[in-house]
Every structure is written in C-alpha cells, then in structure tokens.
C-alpha cells in the first residue's frame, strides 16, 4: 500500500524541529525504517512529518567524559565498525549484527529505535541495562530521563509528542569489563524472541561489577536487578552464573504468553540465554583482564 498524504518539513536546526513538532499529529522521520513501513501499511497516518536528516548538529558519535554520546542521526551501521569505546564498543558491535540487514542498518538509527520502543528491539534493552541517560528536547528546553524510566510499555515511552529524543549517553564500561550478548530467534530473519546482554568485571575471581539486560522478556526492556544481586561479590564460577541466570528467568523476566511460547518456556529460555551471555562475558573479561 501507499502512505496517506502528509505535510513534509525538513528543518535545519533543533529550534525548527521543536517548533514543527509543536504542530500536533506529527512524526519524526530519522531512518524511517519502521515509520515508513507503518505508513505504507497505513497503521500510522501522521498529518505532518518532520524529517530531521538535514539537521547538521544531529550527526556524530563521540566517546569522552566517561560516556558515549549518540546523536539522532547515528545509524545502526556506525556500530559495526570499531568505535574505539573499549568494551562498550565491543558490546555494541556484537549486538548490531542482530538488527535487520545491512541496507536497513544504513538508514535506521539507534535513537529512532529507542523512541520507537519495539518490544523485541535490542537497543532499548542495551540502554536500560547500561543505565543510559536520554535527553528529550521540547518547547520548554531539555530534560534528561534514565533509560529504565523512559520505556513505558510496547511502543510506548514517556517522550511527549512535542519532544524529540535528542541525545543518548551510554556510560563507557570499565576497561577490564567483559561483555556478552546472546539472542534467540525463530528464524534468522525474525525479530528477537529473547536476548540477554551481560557486562561484568572480575577481580581476584570475584564478580565486582555487573550489568544485565533482557530483550523481549517483559512489557518493557528489563534490567535484571535480582540476577545482578545474585552475582555481585560472588565467585565467577559455573554455580554462580547458573544460579543467577535462573533468578533472571524467575524474578526479572515477566513474559506474556505467546502462541508458540508459554510464559514458563520463556522464563526457562531467559535462564539459558542469561547463563550463556554471562559465560561469554566472563570469558571476554578473562581475555582482556589477564595480568591486571
């Protein structure tokens, strides 16, 4: 199908973007890889479209002051290359290959994915697990929201219609952090059925820092706090990882029944994926942390 008619704006400054958003029934066009699809289906019929692709200050990805700053026009693709952000860069580039296909990644953006809040999307769970800070710019200026408070449910965030997600700041991970990402999908081209994100550090055999996130395991992206507590201060051995993984499935996940996956199955699968992600992170930490 073809989209319904809309008014098109292509502003060049943040101020003009915010002014255009104030008009109501307006959608932001960044990569458009989900929005245009929905417009083609006519499930979304905005009266106005604000194309932000000509706003020069929205480009750029830089690491400094302990954070990776991601602006609205940073495409998924940018993370395929080495972005020189240490373990965080390694994590993001292992995640990004799970997002759609190269031509989609050439257009789609990380911030667009966060704002769209698809339940099976990887970036929202990465942002939540790592405690990213998100800037929302609107008529009254810019407010900052922690990723964990940003996502309200499937396709739902606390962003107001007149606000733009103008920057995400992902904290850089400790230099000796190990990272792991494991995703399960029914076919190669499917959305994630479930995925687990792990980052941790090990000192003298004991886990002394950890971040754990779950994709598509609840109504919104999950930071697995209970499982993190089960890991902190414990030896990085098989017993700890398996026990914490079970906690993630039983306490942190809150899955909905699906036609091909009962809630019980999903809790079990979360446990398996979390264990594998943790094992990968411990191995990765060993590879980078030897002798420190």
């Amino acid at each position: 199908m073809k989209p319904t008619a809309f008014e098109y704006f292509a502003p060049r400054t943040v101020e003009e973007v915010v002014a255009a958003l104030a008009g109501g029934d307006t959608r932001v066009l960044a990569g458009g890889q989900s929005l245009v699809l929905e417009m083609n289906y006519r499930t979304v019929r905005p009266a106005r479209l604000v194309d932000i692709n000509r706003v020069a200050e929205f480009t750029g990805l830089d690491a400094g002051d302990g954070v990776l700053r991601v602006r609205p026009l940073v495409r998924h693709r940018a993370f395929e290359r080495d972005i020189s952000a240490g373990p965080l860069g390694r994590l993001l580039s292992s995640v990004v290959h799970n997002i759609a296909h190269p031509p989609i990644r050439a257009r789609g953006t990380m911030l667009g994915s966060l704002a769209y809040a698809h339940p099976a999307a990887e970036w929202p769970a990465v942002a939540t697990a790592l405690d990213a800070q998100l800037d929302l710019t609107g008529p009254d200026g810019t407010r900052t929201v922690a990723a964990e408070a940003f996502f309200a449910g499937p396709f739902d965030t606390v962003r107001r219609p007149e606000e733009l997600l103008s920057e995400a700041r992902l904290p850089l991970l400790p230099d000796r952090a190990g990272v792991g990402f494991v995703e399960h999908r029914r076919t190669h081209a499917s959305f994630a059925q479930l995925a687990a994100i792990a980052a941790l550090t090990v000192r003298d055999g004991v886990i002394d820092w950890v971040r754990l996130g779950l994709v598509n395991a609840a109504e919104r992206p999950v930071r697995a706090h209970a499982a993190e507590r089960a890991l902190l201060g414990q030896p990085a051995d098989a017993g700890t990882l398996t026990g914490a993984a079970r906690v993630a499935g039983e306490q942190d996940a809150d899955p909905r029944e699906q036609p091909h996956a009962s809630a019980g199955y999903q809790r079990h699968a979360v446990g398996v994926l979390v264990r594998r992600a943790l094992e990968a992170a411990v191995r990765d930490a060993g590879a980078v942390g030897d002798g420190r």
Binding site: L37, N40, I104
Partner: peptide
C-alpha cells in the same frame, strides 16, 4: 513495500537502501 524483500534496493549516495522505505523528497 515494507522493507523485507529488498527487490527495490537502489544506491543513494553510493549506499544500498530500500527505496520503498524512503520518500523521494528525502
């Protein structure tokens, strides 16, 4: 016409994209 099949792939400024998921005005 929703970005799955890739039959409409063209190069825009040298980069392969789905031409069904971009507007001409872009």
């Amino acid at each position: 016409e929703h970005g799955v099949c890739g039959a409409c792939t063209v190069l825009v400024d040298g980069e392969a994209v789905r031409s069904c998921l971009m507007f001409a005005v872009q």
